[in-house]
């Protein structure tokens, strides 16, 4: 079922699928990138162990900067560092580094096209027990609207590790969004990651489902069930880069399937679904179903419980895609 060219983990549908938090991959990726480029500097806002920077802090104390709980100043410091050739990685929880300092990201980073990497952990529903305040569900929208910004939401720990190295080579602002939760390892050491590249994970002809972040795992499960139960062949595209979108891969797929679904751990407004809606209306208007959080704030609970209550578990995705196709009389 899985596209063999992408070299995904072949055991992802087994019950003992390996789990790992993307933030762990982030911490490893920072060490990888730092070993390659001595200009990489990391700035923390009192959540540095939480975003797995302990290894970096120990190995490169002179390249780690404690900024305290002061995200606005931290972003300005990063912009200033970048002007002298440093590559600052600003790493904290996504809820703090995209909301508290959006103005600083806009002016000090994006307007100056500063080479700053904004790394937001605990994205989407992954910080579930902390409640509504701590769940960033608007950050893809608020980051992708900024000129010069690249926006990436990695799907697993391995990909996050690779993405850190890739963004360190990209010149200009990047927002890297990743998860706290222990989620399935979908990609392997052999899976390539390239900024702006989407991959067809499962080929199909009936509907294109595009997803980013670890919730793509639920999407893959849903696609498997759709095929087994209804013989619906969904094409599943992983699009970790939300900006710039891989228009070629996406438009090629929708030309075949003629309808689209997006799945993300984000508000349905302005995120991946919004980006795809814009692309389709510009290039190839087609029916689109956006699956995400329906314009509401969430609450405390377990990650799995929130996914289930708010309609992002595999069985919800499966039902919604089925109804979407049924309404269009495609099945």
């Amino acid at each position: 079922m899985l596209n063999q060219k992408i070299k995904l983990d072949q055991d992802i549908f087994s019950s003992d699928v390996k789990l790992k938090a993307s933030r762990d991959g982030f911490g490893e990726g920072v060490l990888d990138a730092a070993a390659i480029n001595k200009n990489i500097i990391v700035l923390g806002a009192d959540l540095s162990y939480s975003v797995r920077l302990g290894g970096f802090m120990e190995k490169y104390p002179e390249r780690f900067i404690h900024c305290g709980i002061a995200e606005q100043n931290m972003m300005g410091i990063a912009a200033g560092l970048s002007m002298s050739g440093k590559i600052p990685f600003v790493a904290t929880h996504a809820i703090f580094t995209t909301t508290r300092n959006w103005d600083q990201i806009r002016l000090s980073v994006c307007l100056q096209n500063a080479n700053v990497k904004i790394c937001g952990s605990h994205a989407g529903l992954s910080n579930a027990p902390d409640g509504a305040n701590a769940l960033p569900l608007e950050d893809i929208a608020t980051m992708r609207v900024l000129p010069n910004m690249v926006v990436i939401n990695t799907i697993d720990s391995n990909q996050t590790q690779k993405a850190v190295v890739e963004i360190s080579k990209h010149k200009g602002p990047v927002y890297l969004r990743f998860s706290k939760a222990e989620t399935p390892l979908i990609t392997t050491r052999e899976t390539l990651f390239k900024i702006g590249k989407a991959d067809v994970f499962i080929e199909g002809k009936d509907v294109t489902i595009i997803s980013c972040g670890p919730i793509i795992y639920e999407t893959l499960l849903a696609a498997k069930h759709l095929k087994a139960k209804y013989k619906i062949e969904a094409e599943v595209i992983s699009s970790p880069t939300i900006k710039p979108l891989d228009e070629v891969t996406i438009l090629q797929s929708v030309k075949k399937t003629k309808c689209v679904v997006t799945v993300e751990e984000h508000q349905i407004n302005g995120g991946l679904g919004g980006a795809i809606a814009e692309l389709l209306s510009d290039k190839n208007p087609l029916p689109l179903l956006r699956i995400g959080i329906n314009d509401t704030f969430l609450e405390s609970g377990k990650y799995e419980e929130l996914k289930d209550k708010y309609g992002l578990s595999a069985h919800h995705i499966e039902d919604k895609v089925y109804k979407f196709l049924k309404n269009m009389e495609k099945i």
Partner: peptide
């Protein structure tokens, strides 16, 4: 600059570099 408070942090970043 032009959103107040930001240039000061940038300057400190330059000093740190």
């Amino acid at each position: 600059s032009g959103s107040l408070g930001q240039g000061f942090s940038q300057a400190i970043g330059m000093a740190l570099a």
